[in-house]
Amino acid sequence: MPCCPIARRRALGAAALLLSLLSLLSLLWPPLANADGARLAVIDEHGDTLLNLPMPEGAGWCLAWNHSVAGFPVHDCYRHQRGRMVLERSHLPDFAAGLDHIPGRGRQVSDGRGGYWIEAIDEPVPGNAYRLRVGSPRVDHRLLFQGQRISLSDIAAGERVTIRLHRPLP
């Protein structure tokens, strides 16, 4: 977490600037357009929205982080499917520190580099949201979305957040 309120405001200001740029891009590049208005929001424990990304039907994103023991990157990848947040696949570069494939939950395939993907998990996330305690900069929880890397650790390290897919009310 940033050391003081000024640092936190600067981090939130940088995130707001990134969101403004993504919104501008959505006007210039139609695949970013969002006909149903769905958004992926990161909300802190006080109810403040830290991040609010357009998430059109069919769009996907990953939550990535560095494993706290082994240090390698781990990915959980989601997709907006018919109004639902669905865990589509996960990447695990090693079986270390309790990471393993659970038989019957997706299909394990090699990544060609000693790790593996668990494909076809296709599990809806209950309530289209989950809670996360954001890790330190060393863990670097980050959202990967349309070629962008947005570090949650830079704006909310040590905080509990909710990551939610939602549609605005009509």
Rank of each mutant, 00 (worst) to 15 (best):
S26C: 03
Q81I: 08
T49L: 09
L99S: 06
L27T: 10
G127E: 06
I150V: 10
A157N: 13
Y130G: 00
V125C: 00
F145W: 12
A70W: 15
P168L: 12
L19T: 05
D100A: 09
G104D: 02
V74L: 12
W65A: 08
S110N: 08
I163L: 04
P30I: 12
L22D: 02
P56H: 02
L25R: 03
D154S: 10
V86D: 01
P73L: 07
L12D: 10
R131F: 03
D94P: 08
H166N: 07
V74P: 02
A15H: 00
R113P: 07
G13L: 05
R138W: 12
G127M: 06
A7H: 12
A156C: 11
D48K: 08
G104T: 04
A129V: 04
H67T: 08
V74H: 00
Q108L: 15
R113M: 05
A16K: 07
R142K: 12
R133D: 04
R79V: 05
I121L: 15
V69Q: 11
A64T: 12
D140Q: 02
H75W: 06
W61M: 09
L19Q: 09
R107L: 12
D140T: 00
A7K: 11
Y130S: 01
D154P: 03
V161W: 05
S136H: 07
L17Y: 02
I163H: 00
V69L: 11
P124Y: 00
A14E: 08
R105V: 11
R8T: 15
C4F: 15
T49I: 15
S153Q: 10
G147N: 10
S20V: 01
A33I: 06
S68I: 07
L99K: 14
A16Y: 01
E45V: 04
R84L: 13
L22H: 04
V139L: 01
V125M: 00
A41R: 05
P93Y: 11
P56M: 08
E119M: 15
P93E: 14
N52D: 10
L22A: 07
L87H: 04
E45S: 15
P54I: 02
R79S: 09
L12G: 06
G13A: 13
L19Y: 01
L63F: 01
Q148L: 08
D76A: 14
L63C: 03
W29I: 14
G13V: 02
N34P: 05
Y130W: 12
E119S: 07
I102E: 03
